[in-house]
Design a protein around this nucleic acid. Structure first.
Lengths: 234, 234
DNA sequence: ACCTGAACACCGTTCAAGT
DNA sequence: ACCTGAACACCGTTCAAGT
């Protein structure tokens, strides 16, 4: 047998920025943000952590790159998929559902998209990409919105997305990480508090635990579009 | 001169949970979340980091305690301040503005309130307190809401708060932490990207940078209340 | 009872050195 | 050109030991 290279993971492909970002996304997808460290990421790629600094400008840059990777799916696909003959409502419906799909595919990563410090006031989460914002503004102004109307629609739309999607994905994470009952010692005044002091929460606990995120998203989105419509066609 | 105790900070008050939490809030208020470490917090209190573990059950417990400290302001003050003769719209207006006040007083801490994993599905951020949720449900059901209506109002209301306040406080932080121009080396494909490729963003940059958070909050809140009203008095 | 010292197992990041 | 070793300055957390 001729000796082969150690063949750690995937035969030692050449490292590059995209592979690094991809591996980081996978790591967070599987283990949540705490699972992402430069050293662990290096190990995942069969490389010392220090080698990553050649492809990524430190941890912050890596996180930003992960966010960009996810939001890039939202870029320039609107006209390609929809054509210019669709109304602004159709466009906003498409964009809202695209963002929702991204959020639900990477529930562990989405909080990053939604909560990392925006680089500029015209990059409101979760639409953290100049390409996407440009497309948004073109889509609306080319369909009869004034500048002011487009800007305030942008603000309302982004707030809507953050408010609904962040809570939805947080709930998903909770259902996988629960099982925190029976806290060993009886020392701390802890979470295993009885609900009897809160009779209304107790009575409604089941209803409050139901997952209505889909219906709520749709109906809140329709109301938002109505609200925008009322302003635009006043 | 008789020898005195070293008299570090504030004459060595006895340490307790509340002082620890208070100091942690101050630390984050001033330096953001990255400034909070057990060791730094210990130093701030003139104590070794390990002493904190007597009053706080580790870092996670500390963060949760900080959140509780902020949300406790929302508890049981409604009836005290408003009386039971106010309508549900008045109550929701009061609660929304109370949460907004908390968020703006601690813009660095609020993201914690809004994004930390909720302990249960009936504790949706930013209303992370059983007391507050109980009061919310009582306030609405005692004013004619059915159980289902109260629950769906709870969901819509919390989503609204997260969506609006999180982006508002993020914007505040951005304005204090900007000045990231003129990135030293020309190595990375970086943020100093010219806006000329995005003519609409460029043209609307000023409008997009205006701070309309107050007006938007008020008008979006009124629309939300109208929306709820339509369902309740159908 | 309350705090400290020392130790352990981790971090991110740098820089000269290897190949 | 690309990666590694060693080092630095930090982390959170434990536990026996001090007073």
């Amino acid at each position: 047998m001729p000796e082969q290279p150690p063949a750690g993971r995937a035969d030692r492909l050449p490292l590059n920025r995209d592979r690094v970002v991809q591996a980081a996304l996978q790591l967070v997808h599987d283990g949540g943000l705490p699972a992402l460290s430069m050293r662990r990421l290096g190990a995942e790629l069969d490389v010392e952590a220090m080698a990553l600094y050649r492809h990524v400008n430190g941890r912050e840059d890596l996180l930003e790159a992960m966010v960009s990777h996810l939001t890039s799916r939202l870029e320039r696909s609107a006209d390609a998929q929809l054509g210019p003959d669709i109304g602004w409502q159709g466009y906003l419906q498409w964009l809202a559902h695209s963002v929702r799909d991204v959020a639900f595919e990477h529930p562990q990563v989405f909080p990053l998209v939604a909560t990392r410090h925006p680089a500029a006031p015209w990059l409101r989460p979760p639409l953290r990409s100049l390409e996407v914002v440009e497309e948004f503004l073109v889509a609306l102004t080319s369909r009869g919105f004034t500048d002011d109307q487009a800007v305030s629609a942008y603000r309302a739309f982004t707030s809507f997305l953050v408010g609904h999607l962040l809570l939805d994905v947080a709930q998903m994470g909770a259902s996988t990480t629960e099982e925190t009952i029976d806290e060993g010692g009886a020392s701390a005044p802890n979470t295993t508090v009885t609900l009897v002091e809160f009779p209304n929460v107790e009575r409604l606990a089941d209803k409050l635990s139901e997952d209505r995120s889909q219906e709520e998203f749709e109906s809140a989105l329709e109301d938002l579009l109505d609200r925008i419509d009322r302003v635009v066609s006043q």
